[in-house]
Design a protein around this nucleic acid. Structure first.
Lengths: 195, 195
DNA sequence: CAAAAACTAGGTCAATTGACCAAAATGGTC
DNA sequence: GACCATTTTGGTCAATTGACCTAGTTTTTG
């Protein structure tokens, strides 16, 4: 599981190439060029192309999870509403410009349609992501109904926003307000239903 | 703009290949095989590969828009809530299984990151889609604040759901209920804000 | 120190690709 | 039938690709 420096170099290049040029643009030779080594050298560490892809995907999702955890720790919001708003801003910012992260995800969505292993990694990541994020908002990891409902709102909204942002009539700031309101209503409504 | 029978045959094959094998799997030769003609014959109608892609994308979004309009007409829902629920069910159903339509969109998202023309078509489609859908729900095409807010909720949610469905804790039916509630709260909240 | 393991270099190979081309066939029109 | 644009065919071309392979080099280990 632990990668050597050279392997990390290869995986970094693979990820960059995937974001820049897509699945088809991710060739062993370009990886070698980017990583400043010979083709046969790349193939020494990863016998076939698919090995690069699998390793890259696994590492990518781990990195993303770690980054999210870090971002959440930076928040000093004390109220539920403030935490939701902080989260909404952070979640939307990614989708707003088409970042490398955003490009990478688009490629992975496409690849996951034809690659069960990538699909599994992707869904694992989404579960971890939404648990982390909702755990932060509710300040509790208990998987009660509020927890599940909030996850089911935020996960699709953030991912969907990153695709459709350019077609939406509201600004990022307005969207953040909207999502905050919606999230609160999801949590309140549950309380109402309990009666 | 109007395509001949042979051109349609080519574009149909291109779309099928894109969904099945992705951008990299969409080659001129495979299109020719699928369409049961010679490579050079495909190239007679579309000089270069990019021409096939552009024509296919334009046609695909037109077809999608037409299909949505047709689905909406089938609804006999008379209340706001019923229309929302009908829409939620219809919108979620697509994302639930990974259909050809769903696969095609994933490919187009990836391609649009590197292809401004595809990006433009995609955003045009999303605007038309959300206007159509929200116009149906509100039974009005006036672009007031309620209209804009509902569009900004539904568009990301539907697209995001098609990606994350397998990672969500709620069932499709529960999601439809949730989305209906959320949509109503978006519309109510606006009324409250107006005071 | 010597053997084994890890690593690097350079090259080959068949297969596939997009683009291009000249010639042949087709079908309608005068 | 002659003429012309449209369509179709078969073939070529250089470029790129993933996968192998062998021969060296360096580093580690016993």
């Amino acid at each position: 599981m632990a990668f050597s420096a050279k392997e990390l170099q290869i995986l970094d290049c693979a990820q960059r190439l995937l974001a820049e040029a897509g699945d088809a643009g991710l060739t062993m030779r370009r990886i070698a060029d980017c990583a400043e080594m010979r083709l046969s050298n790349v193939q020494y560490y990863f016998k076939i192309r698919d090995d690069v892809l699998k390793a890259m995907v696994a590492r990518y999702f781990d990195d993303c999870s770690a980054e999210i955890a870090q971002v959440l720790q930076q928040s000093q919001a004390t109220t539920l509403r403030a935490r939701l708003y902080f989260l909404a801003r952070a979640g939307l910012r990614h989708g707003d410009e088409v970042t490398d992260m955003c490009r990478t995800f688009r490629e992975l969505w496409a690849i996951s349609s034809r690659n069960p292993e990538v699909q599994t990694h992707l869904m694992d990541y989404y579960r971890r992501f939404s648990q982390l994020v909702v755990g932060f908002v509710l300040q509790s990891d208990e998987e009660d109904a509020r927890h599940l409902r909030l996850r089911s709102l935020l996960l699709p909204v953030f991912e969907g926003y990153s695709i459709t942002a350019a077609a939406l009539p509201l600004s990022e700031a307005q969207m953040a307000d909207l999502i905050t309101e919606l999230a609160l209503s999801v949590l309140e409504e549950e309380a109402a239903n309990k009666e």
